[in-house]
């Protein structure tokens, strides 16, 4: 699925119940992170749920594996990964993720007060991108 398709799918969902159900589907479809990565080293700090993020660097592009023990957060992670995966560090830097989440009707999940780890995850992705520039 492309990001455009995802945005279109979300545009048909006009209440939170349906949006959450769709997020749950996305979460269920997110590939599980191999257990060996579920260590403190790859944990994203400060979350209400456990969140892991593993960066991989290949051919000038960044690829991330992510996971959480909470299903809605997994759904959100799968969107974040769809947005950032296999992009160059400078592409990552220029992505306005807030705009995309607003289009999805999920913008509240990116507020710093929403302690679901998404915000920390995005910061971490940007940090890895910055480091590999």
């Amino acid at each position: 699925m492309t990001l455009e398709e995802l945005i279109e799918n979300f545009s048909y969902l006009d209440n939170w119940e349906d949006r959450y159900s769709y997020l749950i589907d996305l979460g269920n479809n997110l590939e599980n992170l191999p257990e060996e990565y579920k260590t403190p080293e790859w944990k994203v700090q400060g979350c209400q749920s456990q969140v892991w993020l593993v960066p991989q660097f290949q051919d000038g592009k960044l690829h991330f594996l992510g996971d959480s023990d909470a299903i809605l957060v997994r759904g959100l992670i799968s969107i974040v990964l769809m947005i950032y995966n296999d992009k160059s560090p400078s592409e990552i830097k220029n992505i306005a993720i807030e705009d995309i989440f607003a289009k999805l009707g999920l913008e509240e999940n990116l507020s710093p007060s929403r302690r679901n780890g998404l915000m920390s995850m995005v910061s971490k992705i940007k940090f890895y991108a910055e480091q590999s520039m």
Partner: peptide
């Protein structure tokens, strides 16, 4: 997961901590 639960409770107007 308590965090998933809290997402739904929040939408229902219920404030609990997780």
């Amino acid at each position: 997961h308590p965090s998933d639960l809290a997402f739904v409770l929040d939408k229902e107007g219920i404030s609990v901590r997780t």
